[in-house]
């Protein structure tokens, strides 16, 4: 049989194949470089920060005043604001998200589900700065009419708005987990006389518990890292946040506040945003890792 393909063509083809393969690998590796870049920037600038401020002060001081004469660097002030708003967000999103997820996976007819899921995606697509405007100029004045003592900048309204923002993620991840529960378990429950609600609560939720918890963790991570809503509507005063009706700065709002000003590159104020950023990164990483492990677990079970 005569050779139909010239060896030169084959050689060139092999070269192209290898080159494309190498390029694609390089593209995939970019994501690793990004992570390395993030860790490098945060850690190296934080090292410069901690050369001037002791770690103990950073973790135990109850004031945060890097741009004042009398400088204090107690990160717990910002952490408390962050945890307060995220906590409020979870108080809204966890019950609502769990109810919606059960409703979607156990009750809703497929046609309705096909409409609801894209609708939730639309919510996730709204720019966060728009939610910030909505929180500050619509919801806060509205809430002030029936919550006396609610300040113009407060933690309550941004927290609630963030809860609505993370709702789509919580619903989508926990519904995925619920749908991964095998139908045989549901049918077994029905055969024992369980209703759909009882099946949902006593069979599907326990079966999907690791995935549902993962959804809460992902929601928490998003809320902790959410920036614009709190930067606009929660105020910029760094203090230990105890009262949700008053305003307080979060980690993200503080970073925005400093970035807006003209801060010299070598000043301590410039370094604080990286120390605050590292704290934020470690917090979200913790929630993300827990979620990752939990999701892997439920994938293994079924």
């Amino acid at each position: 049989m005569p050779l139909l393909v010239s060896p030169r063509f084959l050689a060139r083809r092999r070269l192209v194949d290898r080159a494309m393969r190498a390029m694609m690998f390089a593209a995939a590796f970019v994501s690793v470089l990004v992570t390395m870049g993030i860790v490098y920037v945060l850690v190296s600038e934080s090292v410069r920060f901690f050369a001037q401020v002791s770690m103990l002060d950073f973790l135990t001081d109850t004031q945060w005043t890097p741009v004042f004469q009398d400088k204090h660097f107690g990160i717990m002030t910002l952490v408390s604001g962050t945890l307060m708003t995220s906590g409020i967000a979870l108080l809204v999103a966890v019950p609502a998200g769990t109810i919606l997820a059960i409703y979607l996976s156990e009750f809703a007819p497929p046609a309705l589900r096909e409409i609801i899921k894209p609708f939730l995606e639309l919510i996730a697509g709204v720019p966060t700065v728009a939610f910030g405007y909505f929180a500050l100029l619509f919801l806060t004045p509205l809430f002030q009419t029936f919550i006396p003592g609610l300040a113009g900048f407060n933690l309550l309204v941004p927290g609630i708005v963030m809860g609505i923002m993370i709702l789509p993620y919580i619903v989508s991840v926990s519904e995925d987990a619920m749908r991964a529960v095998p139908n045989t378990l549901r049918e077994g429950a029905y055969a024992l006389g369980y209703t759909r609600l009882q099946t949902g609560v006593k069979v599907v939720i326990p079966g999907a518990l690791s995935g549902i918890t993962a959804a809460y963790m992902l929601g928490m991570s998003r809320a902790v890292g959410e920036t614009m809503v709190v930067a606009i509507a929660a105020g910029q005063q760094a203090k230990i946040a105890l009262n949700p009706l008053e305003g307080a700065a979060t980690i993200t709002a503080y970073i925005v506040q400093i970035s807006l000003g003209d801060v010299p590159h070598d000043s301590i104020a410039y370094l604080t945003i990286f120390a605050a950023g590292l704290t934020l990164f470690l917090m979200t990483l913790t929630f993300n890792v827990i979620a990752f492990v939990l999701r892997r677990k439920y994938r293994e079970v079924y």
């Binding site: 994501s31 690793v32 920037v41 990164f281 993300n288 990752f292």
Partner: peptide, 20 residues
């Protein structure tokens, strides 16, 4: 890494850009 990057807050990318 890709899974993790999807969960990194957007402001951290801003710090990456500022520092790097």
């Amino acid at each position: 890494n890709v899974t993790n990057l999807a969960g990194v807050p957007s402001i951290i990318y801003g710090l990456l850009a500022l520092g790097l």
